[in-house]
Design a protein around this nucleic acid. Structure first.
Lengths: 156, 156
DNA sequence: TAAGATTGATGTTTCAATCTTT
DNA sequence: AAAGATTGAAACATCAATCTTA
């Protein structure tokens, strides 16, 4: 008995290639606007937001890792950079001496708030405006949701 | 007169975050399957495909750059790697001695053909299967198209 | 001077190995 | 041994400077 494997339709292939390209282009555009405003990259914002939302403004690296979908070593080095820049700091973790706690600093929170308007405007320009009617954004979000392994929320 | 800038709706923000996440997850999954099959990364496939489709199997680096949406230096180094691995080669460009021509080799074409079934199966598994009905793939491709600055086709 | 392309320096990501505590 | 986290080395990306020919 031969195993047969369905082939992706042209529509599926088109969805795939456009997913890659749309992400590439919008990401480049948004990162470009941040840079042009003299602000750090989106990955910093993402990390700062997760810390900011967390209880007490602190998370363990492994929790940050889950939320950001980054490799462990990657998170470790992102924290390094944030810490060097003064936007986060590591503290010992009470109750589990293996672990660390990463806390957002006052400067970190200020930076996050400063980045958001620029980020928001970029989303408006490169996503919302292009899609036009809001129903299309809703439909797109719905379809993209089907590609995602259930995880976390939707806040930018 | 104050300039007002529309804010992105929740739907638009959700579309944005899911675009990033869906790309990240499907890309990781697809790259993972290639690696697991002992094959090189998708960027190699992309370049080999463009060369393969081109007249005479050859393109100038700047044309490759346009099609792949990569930075110039990035393309230059991708060609380096392909050339080192024997899948492409540089030759002088007749008629414009500043330029180069990059040609896919026999091994390069064989590699491309070997990668496609693995790549195709990954698209099926991580995109087509998840979307289910083909109309959804069509709808997704349509919406993503609105985010893309008109460029090139849809072949993977 | 501008176009086509490469290179050096620097920063980031990735992989495997390591270190510490449970 | 396994969990939490970091580190060294190598691959890759990015930015500005460079080189060559048009």
């Amino acid at each position: 008995m031969t195993e047969t494997m369905a082939e992706p339709s042209l529509a599926a292939i088109s969805a795939w290639t456009r997913l890659i390209r749309a992400q590439q282009q919008t990401m480049n555009a948004v990162e470009g606007e941040l840079k042009q405003a003299g602000l750090p990259p989106l990955s910093w914002y993402d990390a700062l937001l997760e810390l900011s939302r967390a209880e007490g403004g602190r998370l363990r690296p492994s929790d940050l890792q889950e939320r950001l979908l980054l490799a462990q070593s990657n998170v470790s080095r992102l924290i390094d950079r944030l810490e060097t820049a003064g936007f986060a700091e590591r503290c010992p973790c009470p109750g589990d001496a293996r672990g660390q706690l990463v806390a957002i600093t006052g400067d970190g929170e200020r930076l996050r708030r400063q980045m958001w308007p620029v980020y928001r405007a970029a989303i408006q320009r490169h996503v919302a405006d292009r899609l036009g009617a809001e129903e299309r954004a809703t439909a797109l979000a719905e379809l993209l949701g089907m590609l995602i392994e259930a995880k976390g929320g939707d806040r930018p």
